[in-house]
Design a protein around this nucleic acid. Structure first.
Lengths: 183, 183
DNA sequence: TTCTTCTTGTAGCGAGTGCTACATTGCCGA
DNA sequence: TCGGCAATGTAGCACTCGCTACAAGAAGAA
């Protein structure tokens, strides 16, 4: 069960598309199976139980997101951290990323509910994202770690504000992050 | 059904306590009814359907949250906007507010899923919060609206980071928000 | 061939979901 | 005292949930 065969890969891809459209926590086995042209019976057979399905799905989605992000924003240092934030926000607001944002907010809500599997995944994703941001910060940054974490916090706030229809508020924060003299 | 009787008030309070503990979107009628020492039958009778129950609950929770927040932080202008953010974050991180944060992230996730009832409530809460912040900003603030929205975005980012166990990252953003020369 | 092992379909279980039909209580006004 | 209406209990419907028992095909090893 460790190696992921080509068939399982296809099943995961189809389920991922379904989850990106409809959300993670509302996904149940039968609709998931239908999306992948298989049966709930087979999902359990391959992944053990529902947690196994969700875990595999989370891994698949995280990998897909990272590769998409790397594709959109190559690993080069930006001139200013404001420009970096603006670039990431632009990607996150693109249609391609909307599904990932939905899933991410599901993970966050589940983490807040202290569902450990989700909380661990969520924490790991943030850590990866901190590293991703750090290597793209301007060269002269005197405190890259703090800058990366600040940038990420503003990004998360932006996702929340966008979700509830107040992207304008997030824009204010982005402009402010970009315009201060701290860089 | 417009007037809320004392009995309904009690039912709402009991259900609110249950939701603050266990989350909003995972709440179903029978557990909710049990928490309020009544029956699912009666909840439907009083509130029409489940959406009615959730709507009433959201209103009750929002009112409770605002009054708790007003209690903790009176409507006076702070010396710096950084101090205001720090004060709000301190309240949001207190045990009293943990349940509200959980429910809020449920609302955000549902909004991202485009469930309109939640999205509207979420937007309204943000608008109320912007006003709440604005009247507490320092007197000399040259762009209070922008400052309030920026502060709120950082606050939302903090909630997300706290949920996934990276409050340290949020601390960096808070310190940065407080320490820049923009005030 | 026969035997084993992997894969898959069919059917269903027990629990939970929102909601409803129907009957019964209790109380208040006429 | 009686009629009417709000309030409540009991039962159940049609459905979904995660998961499992059982059997049967498929495919390769002996």
């Amino acid at each position: 069960m460790n190696e992921i065969s080509a068939k399982q890969e296809k099943v995961l891809a189809a389920m991922a598309a379904h989850v990106l459209e409809h959300g993670l926590t509302t996904a149940s086995l039968r609709p998931l199976a239908k999306a992948a042209s298989t049966s709930d019976r087979m999902l359990i057979y391959h992944f053990g139980d529902k947690d196994g399905v969700i875990g595999a799905l989370l891994g698949y989605l995280a990998a897909g997101f990272v590769s998409g992000l790397d594709m959109a924003i190559p690993a080069e240092r930006f001139a200013t951290k404001g420009a970096l934030l603006a670039a990431v926000v632009a990607v996150m607001r693109s249609p391609m990323a909307a599904g990932y944002a939905r899933v991410w907010l599901d993970i966050v809500a589940a983490s807040a509910r202290r569902e450990i599997a989700y909380a661990q995944t969520g924490g790991a994703i943030i850590e990866g994202f901190v590293a991703w941001v750090t290597v793209r910060l301007p060269d002269g940054e005197q405190n890259p770690d703090r800058a990366a974490r600040t940038l990420l916090t503003v990004l998360e706030g932006t996702l929340v504000m966008d979700a509830v229809g107040h992207g304008d508020a997030a824009d204010a924060a982005i402009a402010w992050f970009s315009g201060d003299g701290g860089q």
